[in-house]
């Protein structure tokens, strides 16, 4: 607990991490109070974007639609507010589950070593042979549209980094005295992993997890942008940008005519990712024991 307070104190000291924290908190509030900020039209399906008509052409901001409507008259403001929920959901779920899988796989690999380690690491190599976006794209295509499918795909190809990290920490921790001592007095393998090694190797995982929040959300949005992620009309920032794509060049002689279709969702997602990146960077600086030491001769 003291550690958490200490981290928080350090976070607030640095202007850029402070900014990151503020941005993330802001989006968290938007996501939590989404039903208040933008009351859903269909309470059973709050993630479905309300339509303000049937015309194809986007319409500019108006009292009814503060950020305007995008292609197909979907309300942009609503999409951004509920998209924050989508972003947090995707980010947390994918990061937590891929970290969990990675930690378990890496722990098994690093603790047992030998041929078990060899096999697991080769499997990891195989998963790493695919570029992340393409792998996620293929799996989503095969599983079908939908946010749940996107999350499964991101988790399926997102755990390897954690596994390697934990395995590395295990291999070095194994040599250390406290593990040898625990083994010598006959503590079971399971207990050694959970009580003695994991608590000492978890920091790099936290660093990695906080750093990958942004990229997970971006990848999920990218899939929606490409049209293989969220279903049509779902509140998702990537999808909103794909709606803007056809209008971005504007009308003849009026390049800026449909600016709102792009600026609001594009700015939102960039800000969200910026917040997480600043925060992740700061957490790494604070927790990384290599950077923690101040060297004075």
């Amino acid at each position: 607990m003291n550690e958490v307070l200490w981290v928080l104190k350090r976070l607030l000291k640095n202007p850029s991490s402070c900014l990151g924290l503020v941005i993330v908190l802001f989006f968290a509030l938007v996501a939590i109070f989404a039903p208040v900020i933008a009351p859903p039209e269909y309470p059973d399906e709050p993630y479905l974007l309300p339509k303000g008509g049937w015309a194809v052409e986007p319409s500019p901001p108006s009292p009814d639609h503060p950020f305007g409507t995008t292609e197909g008259q979907y309300d942009i403001f609503y999409g951004i507010v509920w998209g924050a929920r989508t972003a947090f959901k995707v980010g947390f779920m994918t990061v937590i589950f891929s970290a969990l899988i990675g930690v378990v796989v890496g722990a098994i690999s690093g603790y047992f070593g030998g041929w078990i380690d060899e096999i697991i690491m080769r499997i990891t190599d195989i998963f790493m042979a695919f570029p992340f976006l393409v792998a996620a794209m293929v799996l989503t295509t095969i599983l079908g549209k939908g946010l749940d499918k996107v999350m499964i795909a991101l988790i399926a190809f997102g755990w390897m980094g954690y596994a390697r990290l934990i395995r590395g920490s295990f291999l070095s921790a194994k040599e250390e005295l406290y593990v040898l001592a625990a083994k010598a007095i006959g503590v079971s393998s399971f207990k050694i992993i959970f009580k003695h090694i994991l608590p000492n190797t978890i920091y790099p995982v936290i660093i990695q997890a906080s750093m990958s929040m942004g990229s997970m959300v971006v990848t999920a949005s990218a899939l929606s942008f490409l049209g293989v992620g969220a279903p049509d009309g779902y509140a998702d920032w990537g999808q909103m940008i794909s709606y803007a794509r056809n209008w971005i060049v504007g009308a003849p002689g009026e390049a800026l005519r449909y600016w709102y279709t792009f600026v609001y969702p594009g700015g939102t997602i960039a800000l969200f990712v910026l917040g997480w990146n600043l925060l992740g960077d700061a957490i790494r600086d604070i927790l990384d024991p290599k950077l923690r030491r101040i060297r004075v001769r």
């Binding site: 949005s221 794909s242 792009f262 594009g266 960077d281």
Partner: peptide, 23 residues
């Protein structure tokens, strides 16, 4: 760098297309 790192490619790409071609 941190801005470039935070801009998703589909946001920045469209922005570039918009500026170089649209404008």
């Amino acid at each position: 760098a941190v801005i470039g790192w935070s801009l998703p490619s589909f946001v920045f790409g469209i922005l570039v297309l918009f500026l170089l071609y649209g404008v």
